[in-house]
Structures are given as C-alpha cells and as structure tokens.
Measured scan of single mutants.
Amino acid sequence: AVTGSQTALLLRAFEKDRFPGIAAREELARETGLPESRIQIWFQNRR
C-alpha cells in the first residue's frame, strides 16, 4: 500500500506534470521506494 508521505510526494509531482516521462517516474520511484511500474499505474489511475 502507498503510505501518506508517498501519496503526498506523488500528489505534488502530479500537480506539476500529469504525464511524467520515464525519467521523472524513475526519480519518483527512487524517492518513494515504490517500483516505477507502480508509479505509472498511480498516475494513470489519478488522471
């Protein structure tokens, strides 16, 4: 499950760019500790 702090970080990124590229998703994966594929799905679901 995604924690509150991970969600906050993802929401901030989403406000800046609703369609992040692979580099941005990989950076978010490093920052959150989540797999990049999970980040991609999160953005798809959020849109």
Rank of each mutant, 00 (worst) to 15 (best):
A1T: 13
A1I: 13
A1L: 12
A1N: 12
V2I: 15
V2D: 06
V2Q: 05
V2P: 11
T3A: 05
T3Q: 06
T3I: 05
T3M: 07
G4H: 14
G4Y: 10
S5D: 14
S5K: 14
Q6E: 04
T7I: 14
A8V: 11
A8H: 07
A8F: 08
A8M: 11
A8C: 14
L9T: 09
L9S: 06
L10C: 00
L10N: 01
L10V: 01
R12L: 10
R12C: 09
R12N: 07
A13D: 00
A13P: 01
A13K: 03
F14D: 01
F14G: 00
F14Y: 12
F14N: 00
E15G: 06
E15K: 11
K16D: 05
K16H: 09
K16S: 07
K16I: 11
D17T: 08
D17G: 04
D17N: 14
D17V: 04
R18E: 08
R18C: 10
R18K: 12
F19P: 01
F19D: 07
F19G: 01
F19T: 05
P20C: 03
G21R: 04
G21C: 06
I22F: 12
I22Q: 13
I22L: 14
I22E: 10
I22T: 10
I22N: 08
A23M: 10
A23D: 10
A23L: 11
A23N: 09
A24V: 12
A24K: 11
A24M: 12
R25Q: 06
R25P: 00
R25N: 02
E26R: 14
E26W: 08
E26G: 07
E26K: 13
E27R: 14
E27S: 09
E27V: 12
L28H: 00
A29C: 05
A29V: 06
A29Y: 02
A29H: 03
R30H: 06
R30E: 05
R30N: 06
E31I: 15
E31S: 11
T32R: 00
T32N: 00
T32S: 05
L34T: 01
L34Q: 02
P35F: 04
P35R: 04
P35E: 09
E36D: 08
E36F: 06
E36V: 14
E36S: 07
E36M: 13
S37Y: 14
R38A: 15
R38H: 12
R38F: 15
R38E: 15
I39E: 00
I39S: 00
I39D: 03
Q40F: 12
I41R: 10
I41H: 10
I41Q: 15
W42D: 01
F43M: 02
F43C: 02
F43L: 03
Q44E: 15
Q44T: 07
Q44F: 08
Q44M: 09
N45D: 12
N45I: 10
R46F: 09
R46T: 08
R46H: 11
R46K: 12
R46S: 06
R47C: 04
R47T: 05
R47G: 04
